[in-house]
């Protein structure tokens, strides 16, 4: 076990992992560009696959958004953990004398930043393509809450799938059934925000996402040691 870590060493280790992911990404631009282009392709394909009239389109905008981010997110999560597996980087990370939780949080924050960047780029484009204003504060809060739950579960599970024979293709199979409640609540809350519905309709959905996020963060902390111990 690593030595009793102090809070400052925890923060340092966590930000070091985040920084490592960001600078690797800045040089390779592998994850980010793939996620953005993939998102746009999902937007375009669903537009033609569904071929909706403008009114229906407005009603299902939130659903389309979340489908896009759910699928694009898997690509990013898979890649982010696969990089660690190449050249045994994960072993190197785990051998470093820091709290393992700091590594988990570092990876989670790195992945969150990637998905946020994708969302920031896709949202305005989505607004333009579908002629609907998506720059809504409530929608942004929902995106943050939903993405946290999505990324926490996804990062944790990608640590599992990267160590299996089947590898990457397993991640969505493991992740999607678990994050279903987040997606349901997120779509609900997003739709309500876009329709300017009263907050009392929206709160239950937001609360559920907050509870989900907190519980899965806690579970991640509890179980991460078991995941990487040899």
């Amino acid at each position: 076990m690593p030595k009793q870590p102090s809070l400052t060493s925890f923060w340092k280790a966590m930000w070091a992992v985040v920084w490592k992911d960001l600078s690797a990404e800045r040089r390779s631009r592998e994850i980010f560009s793939v996620m953005v282009v993939f998102s746009l392709l999902v937007v375009i394909i669903s537009n033609f696959a569904l071929d909706l009239n403008p009114k229906t389109q407005r009603e299902i905008t939130a659903g389309m958004l979340w489908i896009t981010f759910t699928f694009a997110g898997t690509l990013g999560l898979n890649r982010s953990m696969a990089i660690e597996k190449e050249n045994n980087c994960l072993d190197g990370l785990l051998l470093s004398p820091v709290d393992r939780t700091a590594i988990l949080f570092g990876k989670v924050i790195g992945n969150l930043l990637f998905i946020f960047m994708v969302e920031i780029i896709v949202l305005p484009l989505f607004s333009i393509f579908n002629n609907i204003n998506l720059l809504n504060a409530g929608l942004l809060i929902t995106l943050v809450l939903g993405s946290i739950g999505y990324v926490v579960v996804g990062t944790f599970l990608s640590t599992i799938t990267v160590q299996t024979r089947t590898g990457n293709i397993l991640l969505p199979i493991l992740q999607f059934p678990i994050i279903l409640p987040v997606i349901i609540s997120a779509v609900r809350a997003s739709t309500f925000f876009l329709q300017n519905q009263p907050m009392e309709l929206i709160w239950p959905n937001l609360n559920l996402m907050i509870a989900f996020d907190l519980i899965y963060i806690a579970l991640g902390v509890i179980f991460f040691d078991y995941l990487v111990e040899e």
Partner: peptide, 17 residues
């Protein structure tokens, strides 16, 4: 671990719907 993580999500699914 997966058996536990998966089960925890079940009541959330129920509630969300």
């Amino acid at each position: 671990i997966y058996a536990i993580l998966g089960f925890v999500s079940v009541p959330f699914s129920f509630l969300s719907i």
